[in-house]
Design a protein around this nucleic acid. Sequence first.
DNA 1: AACCTATTGCAAAAATTTTGCAATAAATTT
DNA 2: AAATTTATTGCAAAATTTTTGCAATAGGTT
Lengths: 141, 141
Amino acid sequence: MLIDGVKFKEILDKRQLRLTGQRKALYQSLAGHNQPVSLKRLASSLSGHMDQVTVYRNVDLFESIGVINKVYTGWKYRIELSEQFRPHHHHMTCVNCGKIITISLGNRMEKAMESFGEKHGFKITGHQIELSGLCKSCLRV
Amino acid sequence: MLIDGVKFKEILDKRQLRLTGQRKALYQSLAGHNQPVSLKRLASSLSGHMDQVTVYRNVDLFESIGVINKVYTGWKYRIELSEQFRPHHHHMTCVNCGKIITISLGNRMEKAMESFGEKHGFKITGHQIELSGLCKSCLRV
DNA sequence: AACCTATTGCAAAAATTTTGCAATAAATTT
DNA sequence: AAATTTATTGCAAAATTTTTGCAATAGGTT
């Protein structure tokens, strides 16, 4: 596992949440994916380790403590580890084959988003940017 | 109704889809909202005019023919008329009170998104940009 | 090892979305 | 204007997804 498991434990500890076997399994499964996963896939990949209800409850929990982000690619949301564990990035999804590419927009554009909010009196705390289009191979066909 | 109803009819005609009372009602309800609506609210605002199943079916249809866009603000998606009926824009949502503000990012940034895709071999056909943060009033409290 | 209580699994409810089919009503033709 | 054609609707019911209550289990502490 490339992704820091110590930080995960710290985040739980700080709030007196327990590091259970199920939470470890969930975290590791997320760390093992290098693309956002749907809750359905996540749950089925973990079946045997834990009940589906526990997946739901912990996904909610993980979101509330900032361990994961929900990403909307296409019709449904998917889940990935947050920026505490991975560099900030965005996605580009092929509308034809569903391929997801991870991209980073660069500092200038990221900053621009924040100052954009300020112009309208907002203090920006996060943003979602999802591009969709046709990937190289689907363009050819 | 400020929003072009003729174009709506044309879009249906072109595909030999029928302009039913229910579709008119749905379109008008969408035209009457100046913010994205959840499917739930949409359905309940139309109850009496049409069955919930019909709302689902027509929302699907409207999406497939480009009449509406699905927008992800917060946890769930919401629906709004597409760029065929309204100027292209994005949203900024207050994470505290849920207020949604419509914003436009300006040509430079819009273009930048497209060329970003090209760099990675994608032909960009659309994008979602959703900012979240705290609005003026929620910052004060 | 005993204790405290957060967390889990199970069963079941609630909410959301999809499906099949007969009845209805747009649009076209006569 | 009536008849015709067939896309569309409403209803009932199934399927799927998400939430809830509670007793049993198992982290973490003393």
